[in-house]
């Protein structure tokens, strides 16, 4: 097994008095897709948001334990959280393009981080749209509003937008739950391609999807990490009774 890219050690998360993640430890491999599965409310999305510290913005949140990215603890006091989020990109459950042109959506991130040169920005736009398999569909209307795109196209635009800041890790929070089956298939195909360059962590409630796209899988239940391992192993020979029941469709 390759060396892990992200290691989570004894992570506890509280929303006020609600203990949302209980002593979670997990190793996440680089250049692979790790799927987090579990019934809704199990803490998988909260876990994901610990990796780019998006939980910081939730009022009354408290995090204990360590999340190491390339050996650096994200919750160290010295960490520049905005830089972290540049390194660890995120795609959300609902497509959330800015109400601007397609072009401006993509260059939003690069501009934030100080890239101004027109040519460079143009290059980034084309490159990331190609990476997100969207370039062909939108190349003639880059200056048109992103809100005119279909839901599936919007989500791929959001992926392209996330890639435009050159992240190393990409977090995806149920990225296809608001999409139709055709768009879902396109996005899944895209995810499988992305792992060549990026470390991908994806939350999904759809086990077929997890099986289709992932290398590794981690199963969460009621704030605890029940079981993790290579996807094929976890799906075919789960060790824990609860994992077995979940996969068999007994709950969630």
């Amino acid at each position: 097994m390759e060396k892990s890219r992200i290691s989570v050690r004894n992570l506890n998360l509280y929303y006020g008095t609600n203990h949302a993640l209980k002593d979670v430890s997990l190793e996440i491999r680089g250049s692979a897709v790790t799927a987090l599965i579990g019934p809704s409310g199990c803490g998988k999305s909260s876990f994901l948001r610990c990796i780019n510290r998006m939980n910081d913005f939730v009022e009354g949140v408290r995090v204990e334990g360590k999340v190491l990215l390339d050996g650096e603890n994200l919750y160290d006091r010295r960490v520049d959280a905005t830089l972290l989020r540049k390194k660890v990109g995120m795609v959300f459950q609902r497509p959330n393009p800015f109400p601007m042109s397609i072009y401006d959506n993509i260059v939003y991130g690069p501009r934030l981080h100080g890239i101004r040169a027109r040519q460079e920005l143009d290059g980034i736009v084309e490159e990331t749209l190609r990476e997100a398999a969207l370039f062909g569909e939108v190349k003639d209307r880059l200056k048109k509003s992103a809100l005119a795109l279909s839901g599936g196209q919007q989500q791929r635009l959001c992926i392209a937008r996330a890639l435009a800041v050159r992240p190393e890790v990409l977090l995806m929070d149920e990225p296809t739950s608001a999409l139709d089956p055709v768009s879902t298939r396109k996005v899944e195909e895209l995810i499988r391609n992305l792992k060549k360059k990026y470390t991908v962590v994806i939350v999904t409630h759809n086990m077929q999807q997890a099986a289709r796209v992932c290398d590794d899988t981690a199963f969460f239940l009621a704030g605890e990490l029940v079981e993790s391992g290579p996807g094929d192993v976890l799906f075919s020979r789960p060790k824990d009774r609860r994992t077995r029941e979940y996969i068999a469709g007994r709950f969630g």
Partner: peptide, 24 residues
């Protein structure tokens, strides 16, 4: 979602307000 998108791209709170929220 607009705020979340900007913050997740590494935008600071102030950048998010001025470049994403106000234009929206």
């Amino acid at each position: 979602g607009i705020r979340a998108a900007s913050l997740a791209l590494g935008g600071s709170r102030v950048q998010t307000v001025f470049r994403a929220v106000l234009p929206a």
